[in-house]
Every structure is written in C-alpha cells, then in structure tokens.
C-alpha cells in the first residue's frame, strides 16, 4: 500500500520521457444515454461513447515541451499521420496509454514566472493500455 504524488509521476510522448513536466491531468467521461420508458419510476441509462481529454504543463527549459508543441504550433496542416502522439501517463507502476491529438498549446512569458507550456489534448479512439 502506498500513496502516490507528483514525485511518482511522468509523461512519455512516442516512447520518450518528457523532461521538466510540472503536471499532467486526464479527464475521462462516458456518455449516459437515457433509456427511460413510459411507466418507469426512475430514470435509466445505457452507456454511450467513451471520451477523454487531458492537460499537461511543461517548463520551457531547453527543448522540453517541443515534442508536444510541434504538433500544434507549426507551419502546414495538422494531419492524422504526423500529428497523432502516443502519450503514456504514468505514476509509479501504473499507467494509461493513449493516442491523442494536441488540441491547444498555450505559451506564457511573464515577469516573475518561469516560462512554461500548457498543453491540451484529446484522446483518439480507445485507450491503448490501462494499468490501474
């Protein structure tokens, strides 16, 4: 038995561990499709589609956030073939592997703060692997 904290966390992109990650988060949802009939006393649902989105913040130290940024902030079109990234969100011996497209990249350069990149992503298809 053990607690997990940021000390146990890491983020991989296309099999390479990203440096200088200060946080990641993943939010998973399952649609609830209503199947309540006339005469029912309570609402009833059936599961619909799964979806997941997430965020990650990476300090802009050397090129640490570039592997993710380059799929959003780029010249030319964003394509399925070149810009879908295999992300692995890990903590301890647990992990969630997904294929995702980067949906946002926010760069902030601010007085009194270290520059960092805030990345948003949406999961494409099913999870590749889940170890909880």
């Amino acid at each position: 038995m053990a607690f997990f904290s940021g000390r146990d966390g890491s983020l991989y992109a296309d099999g390479v561990k990203l440096a200088r990650v200060s946080n990641w988060s993943l939010s998973s949802t399952v649609e609830a499709l209503e199947v309540t009939d006339l005469g029912d006393d309570s609402r009833d649902y059936t599961p619909g589609l799964k979806a997941a989105t997430g965020t990650a913040s990476i300090f802009y130290y050397d090129d640490a956030p570039v592997p993710l940024l380059q799929h959003v902030i780029k010249t030319g079109p964003v394509t399925d073939a070149t810009d879908k990234v295999a992300l692995s969100l890990r903590w301890g011996d647990k992990k969630i592997d997904v294929n995702a497209i980067m949906t946002s990249a926010a760069l902030t350069c601010q007085v009194g703060a270290v520059m960092q990149a805030d990345i948003g992503f949406s999961v494409c298809g099913d999870y590749s692997d889940v170890v909880l």
Partner: peptide
C-alpha cells in the same frame, strides 16, 4: 527575493528558481 517553484514530476525535493 521571489522564489519560483520549478519542481517537476518525479522530483523528491522542491526546486526553486531565483525570481524578482
């Protein structure tokens, strides 16, 4: 002196960077 927290995932100790 402002200390900016630059602790990363995987760190066991807080890391700080000199601010303003």
């Amino acid at each position: 002196r402002q200390a900016v927290d630059v602790t990363e995932l995987g760190d066991s100790f807080r890391q700080q960077f000199s601010g303003l």
